[in-house]
Amino acid sequence: MNMGNTGASQSGRGMARHAPTSRRGRVVLAKPGLDGHDRGVRLVAQALRDAGFEVIYMGLFQTPEAIAEAALQEDADIVGLSVLSGTHLFYSQRLMSLLEQRGLRDRVKVVVGGMVAQKDIPRLRELGVAAVFPAGVMVRDVVQGIEAQMGAPAP
């Protein structure tokens, strides 16, 4: 598995983070806004951890600002938003521009999971979201999708 993030040396990643558990990459997961449905994101967090990713699940009620900050501080390869309240376009757009402001747009890939209507998937892709996992996909497919992102070029 490709390490994905080519900026490892200048990003200040400590050697400890290259221990076997983190070899596949660092994923920050968060639930933005007030949506409390966290059954899916917790399952994804566990599965990614089991697959060898280093997972930082920020929990509920996160602001886009806090998520962007965590992406920077945690030197994330992937940021995953879980949204089941229909607010995915709003929060994705907000997050993408905050990542841009922090110069992370090309280093961090954003993925979105949750109750996403089919017609919103192209809209999310246009915003720069690398992958969308609508409710109903298998957790193993989410893990595979994220693994694939680790090796793929920026969208």
Partner: peptide, 10 residues
């Protein structure tokens, strides 16, 4: 400010 995207949503 916390609810900008949430009002009338669900």
């Amino acid at each position: 400010s916390m609810v900008e995207a949430e009002v009338g949503r669900v």
